[in-house]
């Protein structure tokens, strides 16, 4: 089971990067970036997973019950919050760039060159 989750993380990372590299549309590219990000969710949750363990909320289960690692869940939640900000900013930049130039193709924005 856990190996599958690690494979999923690696697959999401690779497929997301492939999308970023081959994208022809800025919004598509940013969504691909969030696919890469999803791989970090899968990785973190897989690391904290324990077979047969309960959720780490000890309000209604006796203390001492095996629970999954709450730290990685906190990390993942922080990750969600941080990345939502970044994604919103990226999408806003893409929308503004479209308003100014009428273009969304990352290969064709061509406003700056080395």
């Amino acid at each position: 089971m856990t190996h599958l989750a690690y494979c999923l993380a690696a697959w999401l990372f690779a497929v997301g990067l492939y999308g970023v590299v081959t994208s022809r549309n800025m919004v598509h590219l940013i969504i691909c970036l969030s696919v890469v990000q999803s791989s970090t969710y899968a990785l973190l949750l897989a690391i904290g997973y324990r077979a047969g363990a309960a959720a780490p909320v000890f309000a209604d289960i006796p203390s001492g019950t095996p629970a999954v690692d709450p730290v990685v869940q906190a990390l993942m939640l922080t990750d969600v919050v941080v990345e939502v900000t970044i994604m919103a900013l990226l999408l806003a930049l893409a929308v503004l760039a479209y308003e100014r130039t009428g273009k969304l193709d990352p290969n064709d924005l061509g406003m700056i060159r080395g």
């Binding site: 970036l33 970044i86 900013l89 990226l90 503004l96 760039a97 130039t101 924005l109 406003m111 700056i112």
Partner: peptide, 18 residues
């Protein structure tokens, strides 16, 4: 208000986010 800074920021943002 200019396209140049927007694209510069996008290049910066995407590479650094990866």
């Amino acid at each position: 208000e200019e396209p140049g800074p927007l694209q510069g920021a996008l290049n910066f943002a995407v590479t650094n986010t990866v």
